[in-house]
Design a binder for these strands. Structure first.
Lengths: 115, 115
DNA sequence: AATTTTGTATCGGTTTTCCGATATATTTAA
DNA sequence: TTAAATATATCGGAAAACCGATACAAAATT
């Protein structure tokens, strides 16, 4: 029952999620976050998070300065995903709400362009 | 490309999302959050958020102390949902990644054998 | 009516997130 | 090799999220 307070803030979670797919450098993480969030977090935001996650043993960094998940990091990601899905179990409703709502401009960037 | 920095923290977004479905009192919001997040935020967390959102013109409160979205609140929710979906466009992969059912206590076991 | 319980709300303060400015390292270009 | 550009990293601090303690209000119970 106790889901120990995961998911305070998106950034750490997002970075874990990105690195689960592929190991990335700090700069590459910045670019990917820009794609998702619409603006690129400053280096002063990204690197401290990377440092913190590394210090916690969730990330490791290779000789090319690419960050990737440790085993512990993968477990932490699993926990975070669990919390995330529990909290947003009805995310599908959001999708419907978003792209079909009369009052909104309905320009989800991931939506297929309707000619 | 600029999507104005929405979605700082879950709580406001979640509360808007809940109230979009149904008008609720502060206590009812607490119970619903407990269901989703696994613990109930203290009144000292919930009410200041409600007050803040009300001050911003996103919520209104009726005579029974039930909060609900104003028109502006609905627009704000729309914006937040779009940001949320843009950021987490690959949430379905998370579902696959985490094979657990939301309500079950079955553990997410991708735990690889320890080396 | 008086007491207990529950809901509403505020306040002060702690923690966390995040950024701007800055510094250092590395790569690229000259 | 030097200079410029880019990437990496640190630091101090601002802003926000969040909570515990507390107080007040309303409802329920006695």
């Amino acid at each position: 029952m106790n889901k120990h307070c995961a998911m305070k803030g998106f950034l750490s979670f997002l970075i874990l999620w990105l690195l689960n797919k592929k190991s990335l450098t700090g700069a590459e993480i910045g670019l990917e976050l820009e794609k998702r969030k619409g603006h690129r977090p400053s280096p002063g935001t990204i690197y401290p998070v990377l440092k913190d996650l590394t210090k916690k043993g969730l990330l490791k960094i290779d000789i090319e300065k690419r960050y990737s998940l440790t085993k512990k990091g993968k477990q932490e990601l699993d926990n975070n995903i669990q919390s995330f899905l529990d909290t947003f179990w009805d995310v599908d409703e959001m999708r419907e709400h978003c792209c079909c709502h009369p009052n909104s401009d309905s320009n989800c960037s991931h939506k297929e362009p309707t000619t």
